Simulated scan of single mutants.
Amino acid sequence: MGIFAIHYTYPADMTEAFKIRAEHRDWLTGLPGLRVAGMYHEGHDEFSEGEETVEEPPNGALIVVEADSLDDVVEAFDEDPYWLGGHVLRRVVREWNPPLGPWVADASQGNA
């Protein structure tokens, strides 16, 4: 089992997406291995000094799940009503197995 972080980028205007928000949340609630999910707070991101960056769109979300493989996560998230409805502009799925904190699968792996 691994931990996976899924980053969604949403359109600036979420009017249409919010029409199916309950369906999206019901889908998330029933997702096996869900650890946490939610939209980012409105505002600006902080970037370290000297980085040349492009500001992220104002709406996005972070979802963290436990699953057997990246393929399993992608297959599951292909069924998200927001994804199916075209309300996700960009989706990034990354394996993320933190060596510290409450989600550590193997506490002997103490290096970040």
Rank of each mutant, 00 (worst) to 15 (best):
T29P: 01
P99D: 03
P81F: 02
E75Q: 14
E95N: 06
A107S: 10
D45E: 13
R21Y: 05
E49I: 08
A105K: 14
T15V: 10
V54G: 05
A17I: 04
W103F: 15
P98R: 09
E16N: 12
A76W: 03
E55C: 07
H41F: 05
E51L: 15
W96G: 01
D80L: 00
D78A: 06
L62M: 14
D71G: 13
P32S: 07
G33T: 05
S69A: 07
A5S: 11
H24P: 11
F18R: 08
L84R: 15
E46S: 09
F18L: 10
L100D: 03
G60E: 12
V92L: 05
N59I: 08
V93A: 03
W96Q: 00
H41I: 07
G110M: 11
T9W: 12
R25E: 06
N97H: 09
L34Y: 03
P98S: 07
P98L: 02
G38R: 10
S108Y: 11
V73M: 11
A61D: 00
Y82N: 06
I3Y: 08
D72S: 13
L70N: 06
L28N: 05
E49W: 05
V73E: 13
R35D: 00
K19W: 00
E52M: 07
M14H: 05
H87W: 09
M1G: 13
P58W: 08
F47C: 11
E51P: 00
L100C: 03
R25F: 00
P58S: 08
V64N: 01
E49T: 13
I20H: 05
E23V: 03
H7C: 02
E52Y: 09
R91M: 15
R94E: 09
T9R: 13
W96C: 07
E52A: 10
E51A: 12
W103K: 03
A5Y: 10
V64A: 09
T15D: 08
A76E: 08
L62G: 01
A107C: 01
P32D: 12
R35L: 13
G38F: 00
P102A: 07
E52F: 01
M14C: 04
E49Y: 04
S48E: 11
T53Q: 09
G60R: 14
E75C: 02
G50D: 14
R25V: 04
A22Y: 03
R21D: 07
G33A: 04
A112W: 15
A112L: 15
Y8L: 09
D78T: 02
Y8P: 02
D13H: 07
H7G: 01
E52W: 04
P32T: 12
K19S: 00
L28G: 09
P81V: 12
I63A: 01
G60F: 13
I20R: 14
F4P: 14
A76M: 12
D106W: 07
T9M: 06
R90W: 07
S108N: 09
E56V: 03
A67E: 12
R35P: 00
P57K: 15
A61Q: 03
D68Y: 00
E23Q: 13
W96A: 11
V73H: 08
E23M: 01
E55S: 13
V36S: 15
P32A: 02
M14L: 15
V93I: 15
A61I: 02
T9C: 01
D71N: 10
E75F: 09
M1N: 11
E51D: 09
R35Y: 07
D71K: 08
A67R: 14
T29N: 14
R35N: 07
R25K: 12
D72G: 02
S48C: 06
V64C: 05
